[in-house]
Design a protein around this nucleic acid. Structure first.
Lengths: 231, 231
DNA sequence: GACTGCATGTAACGAGTTACATGATTGG
DNA sequence: CCAATCATGTAACTCGTTACATGCAGTC
């Protein structure tokens, strides 16, 4: 139930409406745990039901109202409990790596396209995280300012340090993914070079022809060969 | 829909029952994408409905039967399509890092406990992946042998290479996570040392006493401080 | 005859995604 | 008055988790 606890942590900084919560969420927690507003509003109602937060309606303009939620003691206790508690680390589930395991069902161009996209994605992520960690280090986000203003002096250092450490971790991860993608691209080059070497084409033959050069063997399109196993 | 395509890929190697599928799954794909059998059986039925696989019932002993699924041409096409297709990389969602961002709500011991568990988990993962990649490199798993026996010669190298690359990536990731956890532990030490320095205890005072040494200020247990925000 | 492995499921729930939907307020 | 932004939702669906449930087959 990470969403719930992320919301508790945000409300610990300051009472807010669901809308502001969603805004702050996008600018902070969402870098680590994404959630759309359609998940936030109902969760807030469930949390209120469970007594972790209370909402009071506040006027907005003449006719409209908004609902401001604040933490209850139970909510604070739940937040503390969650932070203490070791949660089981999730099972591995990585769609990109799964697909990469089966690139032999596609061609070299496809493998390259995927590794290239992987690289681009994680470079972008890295940029975003680096920008954000810089803000954190300068204590330059709205949320952090609020939090620091409230935290007792001896905790301020920790408030920043833990978050910075998390973002450094994310950045290193992103770098690792970029390295992995680049190594993947090099690997594809090598595999292709070997294919070419194994089937030497007459000088000047365009690269494309590689697919169907040898005449030996059955018509071997890449994904053929599917008789039921003889046993 | 990664589960579906993982199953297609397994069936591409050899027709199998749901049960064997689940077994092979656990010994291969599950290192990258975990799924329990309760998810596999219904998915197989849906895939049959969709025409990607066909099942025939086969006798087992005198009374029992089992259902053996094989890929159809549509299934093969779907597998090829999926491998070609760029799927959007998933949004970040990391419960452990999220919680780490808020370690200031717990005490140093709790932060240490978490980083320590993180380290242990990823060291274990690394061991498992290293063992598996060794098997892959030696072409020493049942599934890989089947696959290699069927694959046209020019694809064999790729079949192994892509998988090995994936596991190398996972191993590097695990190492990175271990480094992150260790850095976290060092950080906690530093934070605690600073706390001690800021509240100098009489020489000879045992470390434990740090928590309640100074008499100035309110009774400040490390994880206290949860009055509603005064403003 | 008991235990282990083979074989296949259901049901309830929780979490997350995408799309649709509506209306008030504020500032230019 | 129009657009952006504040504000709050619902509905349908997919995916995944956990627990419960059943029964045959082979072997010691």
């Amino acid at each position: 139930m990470s969403l719930r606890h992320a919301l508790l942590a945000l409300l610990e900084a300051e009472p807010m409406s669901g809308y502001s919560l969603a805004k702050f969420f996008d600018q902070s927690v969402a870098y680590v745990w994404h959630a759309p507003h359609s998940q936030i509003y109902p969760e807030l109602r469930r949390m209120e039901q469970a007594g972790m937060i209370t909402g009071r309606s506040e006027a907005r303009g003449t006719f409209a109202t908004k609902r401001i939620y604040s933490l209850t003691d139970d909510g604070r206790a739940e937040l503390a409990r969650w932070v203490e508690e070791l949660s089981p680390l999730p099972r591995e589930r990585d769609a990109a790596y799964l697909k990469s395991s089966y690139f032999e069902y596609g061609d070299y161009a496809s493998a390259r396209k995927h590794f290239e996209a992987h690289r681009a994605h994680h470079e972008e992520q890295r940029r975003r995280w680096e920008a954000h960690v810089k803000q954190l280090e300068n204590r330059d986000t709205d949320l952090l300012r609020i939090r620091l203003a409230q935290a007792p002096e001896h905790l301020r250092k920790q408030v920043v340090a833990y978050k910075v450490h998390v973002y450094h971790g994310l950045i290193e991860r992103a770098k690792q993914e970029v390295r992995w993608a680049l190594a993947g691209l090099r690997m594809v080059d090598e595999l292709e070079a070997e294919t070419v070497a194994a089937r030497p084409a007459p000088a000047g033959t365009p690269r494309k022809a590689v697919e169907r050069t040898k005449s030996a063997g059955p018509p071997t399109r890449v994904s053929r060969r599917h008789e039921p196993p003889r046993r």
